[in-house]
Amino acid sequence: MEPMYTTEALATGAGRNGRSVVKDSDLDFNLAAPKEMGGSGDGVNPEQLFAAGYAACFHGALQLVAKSEGADLGDSSVGARVSIGKDETSFGLAVELEVTIPNLPHDEAQKLADKAHEVCPYSKATRGNIDVKVSVIED
Results as ranks from 00 to 15, higher is better:
Lys111Phe: 09
Phe50Gln: 13
Gly60Pro: 10
Glu118Trp: 05
Arg81Glu: 15
Lys115Leu: 08
Glu88Cys: 00
Glu118Lys: 13
Asn103Met: 06
Val99Ser: 01
Lys111Leu: 10
Ala71Met: 14
Ala116Glu: 07
Val65Ile: 12
Cys120Asp: 11
Ser90Ile: 01
Ser76Cys: 12
Ser90Phe: 00
Asp75Ser: 14
Ser83Val: 10
Ser90Arg: 02
Glu69Lys: 11
Asp87Ala: 02
Arg81Gln: 13
Asp72Gln: 14
Ala116Asp: 10
His59Asp: 08
Leu62Gln: 15
Asp42Val: 00
Asp87Gly: 00
Asn103Pro: 03
Ser90Gln: 00
Pro46Ala: 13
Ser68Ile: 06
Ala71Arg: 08
Glu88Trp: 02
Asn45Phe: 05
Ile84Lys: 03
Glu69Arg: 15
Gly92Cys: 00
Arg81Trp: 08
His59Leu: 13
Ala55Ile: 12
His117Lys: 11
Ala51Thr: 02
Cys120Glu: 10
Phe58Ala: 12
Asp75Met: 10
Lys86Val: 04
Gln63Lys: 15
His106Ala: 09
Ala71Val: 05
Ser40Trp: 00
Phe91Gly: 01
Tyr122Thr: 06
Cys57Asn: 04
Leu64Gly: 14
Ile84Met: 07
Ala80Arg: 05
Ala56Trp: 08
Glu47Trp: 08
Ala56Gln: 08
Thr100Asn: 09
Gly85Phe: 01
Gln48Thr: 01
Gly60Glu: 10
Gly43Asn: 03
Phe58Glu: 15
Ala94Pro: 00
Ser83Arg: 14
Leu93Ile: 00
His106Glu: 14
Gly53Met: 10
Asp72Cys: 04
Ala52Met: 06
Ala113Cys: 11
Ser77Val: 08
Leu73Ala: 11
Thr89Ala: 03
Gly85Tyr: 02
Ile101Ser: 14
Ala80Gly: 14
Gly70Gln: 06
Gly79Asp: 15
Val99Phe: 04
Val99Tyr: 00
Gly79Gln: 15
Asn103Val: 08
Lys67Trp: 09
Gly70Trp: 08
Tyr54Trp: 12
Glu96His: 03
Lys86Gly: 01
Cys120Thr: 07
Val119Lys: 05
Ala56Met: 07
Ala51Pro: 15
Gln110Val: 13
Tyr122Phe: 15
Cys57Pro: 10
Val82Cys: 02
Lys86Trp: 05
Asp87Trp: 00
Ile84Cys: 12
Gly43Lys: 05
Pro102Tyr: 02
Gly41Pro: 13
Gln63Ile: 09
Asn103His: 10
Glu118Thr: 11
Phe91Thr: 00
Gly53Val: 03
Gly41Asn: 07
Ala94Ile: 01
Ala51Val: 07
Lys115Val: 07
Pro105Gln: 14
Asp42Thr: 11
Leu73Thr: 12
Ala109Met: 04
Pro105Tyr: 08
Arg81Pro: 04
Asn45Arg: 05
Glu118Ala: 10
Gln48Ser: 02
Asn45Ala: 05
Ala61Asn: 02
Glu108Phe: 04
Ala113Tyr: 02
Glu108Lys: 13
Ser90Val: 01
Pro102Phe: 03
Ala80Met: 09
